[in-house]
Amino acid sequence: MKKMMNQAEMIKQMSDRELLNQLYLSQIILLVLGILGSFLFFSSLENWLSMFKWNGKEIFLFGAVSGIVFVLVDLFLMKVLPERHMDDGGINERIFKNRSLLHITFLSLLIAFTEELLFRGVIQTTFGYVTGSLLFALVHIRYIVKPVLLLSILLISFYFGYIYEITENLNVTIMAHFTVDFLLGLYIRFRSG
């Protein structure tokens, strides 16, 4: 617990630019791990590319629509629960509040692609659904001391893993992840107060 508090204090002492740089660094690390894992665990480029299918109906229904549902549930929880239950230490606020629409779009795409490539595309296809989902949730470690946020990230992680299991289409989980991050980024950027 003390280590978590030290991490929270360290983040508070960072400038917004430093925090954004750390976000980019973490995504580069996850992308490199995803690429290396792809080379290690996929027998061919064709095998790897088979994870990316263009099925508009699946991408829309399982990706975009389910992402919208998660965001609506999250917004509902923000309205009915005390703020302390949904507070991630202000990290998302600092990342998205002063960004342009283009930058929010880029960040959301980058995060969705890198995290889904690694956790669903490499880890889940190699080590299984539960392992991929738990590791995804573990990467979001700052939520561990917040039960509502922890439950939320676990549900999202297992849901993303599940929709990958049933569709075998990484574009679906990338769209779901992008939709959640993009819409919440917009909410943070444009809400009043």
Rank of each mutant, 00 (worst) to 15 (best):
I91D: 04
R94F: 07
E116F: 09
E83S: 15
E9I: 08
P82N: 15
L19E: 12
K79V: 05
Q22K: 15
S44G: 07
F52M: 07
I188Y: 02
G185K: 09
R191V: 08
G37S: 01
F42M: 12
V122N: 00
F136Q: 06
L61W: 11
A137R: 02
V71H: 05
F70N: 03
I95G: 00
K97G: 04
F96D: 06
A8F: 15
Q22D: 15
L155N: 03
E46W: 00
I95Q: 03
L170K: 10
L49V: 00
T167K: 06
V139T: 00
H85M: 14
Q13P: 01
Y159M: 13
L31V: 05
M175F: 01
R142M: 04
G89D: 14
Y24V: 08
P82Y: 03
N171T: 06
F158I: 13
I174W: 07
I68W: 03
T131K: 05
I188R: 02
I141N: 12
E58K: 15
I35F: 12
I35V: 15
Y24N: 04
G89Y: 07
D181A: 13
F113C: 13
K57R: 12
V139R: 00
M1F: 07
I111S: 14
S152Y: 06
L184G: 13
R189K: 15
L186G: 14
V73N: 10
L154A: 03
E83D: 12
G90M: 10
F41T: 07
A8P: 00
I28R: 14
A64C: 12
I59S: 08
M4W: 11
M14L: 08
L40K: 13
G34Y: 09
Q27W: 09
Q27M: 14
Q13C: 11
K2G: 11
S133Q: 00
L110Y: 07
L19N: 08
N169R: 06
F70L: 12
T105P: 12
D16E: 15
F158P: 03
M175V: 11
Q13W: 10
S26Y: 03
V71Q: 04
Y162C: 06
E93W: 12
T105R: 01
F182W: 07
F136Y: 13
F76G: 03
A64M: 06
I123H: 01
T173D: 07
F113L: 09
I156H: 00
L109R: 08
D74A: 14
H140T: 01
F62M: 11
L110H: 03
L36F: 10
V139W: 03
L75W: 08
T179L: 13
